[in-house]
């Protein structure tokens, strides 16, 4: 059997996913990286985006809102601020969240303490929608 990776996707509140897989793809700040077994030790920062986990023919998709990835000895830990498996994303809720964030942002006109957080919410909603609708 081919070598496998152990992947763990954890958020501060729970373990979202853990499994033995063949490949992990994650969105780092500088672009997507794919991790195969025997990958060099790596620590990276993630931006909001899609994480793919491949196991034979099966692929699982996750939306992550940013965080960190650590690869060491065929073990991949993804420390996500927030993460959801594609099949469980509530698109309706994400749309609402997006609408609220957009409205609030246009109200503020891009100034104020809340802007950063709102932009983060907006990106997170966008990522959730795109991950959920694409798969």
């Amino acid at each position: 059997m081919a070598r496998t990776l152990i992947v763990e996707i954890v958020t501060p509140e729970r373990i979202v996913y853990t499994n033995e897989v063949e490949m992990v793809v994650a969105p780092t700040i500088d672009g997507e990286i794919g991790v195969l077994p025997l990958h060099a030790p790596l620590v990276g920062a993630l931006k909001a985006g899609e994480v793919r986990v491949k196991q034979g023919e099966a692929v699982e998709w996750f939306a992550v809102s940013g965080g960190y990835i650590q690869v060491h000895e065929d073990k991949v830990i993804i420390l996500a601020d927030d993460a959801e498996i594609a099949s469980q994303i509530d698109v309706e809720r994400a749309r609402q969240a997006m609408a609220i964030a957009k409205e609030r942002l246009s109200e503020l006109g891009g100034v104020g303490d809340e802007v950063d957080a709102l932009e983060r919410d907006l990106r997170w909603a966008e990522v959730r929608i795109s991950v959920a609708t694409a798969h």
Binding site: P12, T28, P41, V43, H72
Partner: peptide, 26 residues
């Protein structure tokens, strides 16, 4: 081990420390 950093060790640290504080508060 010799880690590779994406984008760099210091920028990861910069992002990581606030998260560390959040974890402590949580």
């Amino acid at each position: 081990p010799e880690y590779v950093f994406e984008p760099s060790a210091s920028s990861v640290l910069r992002l990581l420390l606030p998260t560390y504080v959040e974890t402590l508060v949580y």
